[in-house]
Amino acid sequence: METFLFYLCGGLMLGAAAMTVASRSAVAAAVWLVFSFVCAAGVFALLAAPFLAILQILIYAGAIMVLFLFVIMMLQGPVLPAEVAGRTVGRKALLALPAAAIAVILISWAARGREASFGATPVTGTAAAVAELLLNRYLLAFELISIVLLVAIVGAMSLGRNEEGQP
């Protein structure tokens, strides 16, 4: 049952991700991305990380994508003209090549049964376990992310401000 659900979620996630890239309308792409995120949350839940699954839905599928959609609608989501999409087929193939290469490598690596070499100790991803890691082992990363976000906010504010009061 679990295996079946895993492949179901994983397959749907990949399909939705492919649709995100392939959609010509930005809004449709964003909605496909939401779907992909929800499926990823399912995969997380199956991997014994319930906290991560909830956060994935709350933050990514919820907050961030709503913001995305707002921005796209404010910019009046451009629809790529068909002739532009058609012209760049060669370029698309060129871009797909490295991605396909990486996919092949990863799949062949997984197929050879390298799970044994994966050294991380499995933990159950409850909120308590995540908090324990965040505030101990990954304290620096936790604090540094707040600085990264602060820099991003300062940047958005200072770049987005209008030119009032200029000499």
Binding site: L140, A141, L144, V148, V151, L159
Partner: peptide, 21 residues
Amino acid sequence: LLSLFLAVETMSLAVYVLVAG
């Protein structure tokens, strides 16, 4: 690996804004 990535991001984000601002 984690501090490497976050350090790159801290530096880069600040520099992007410095360049564009």
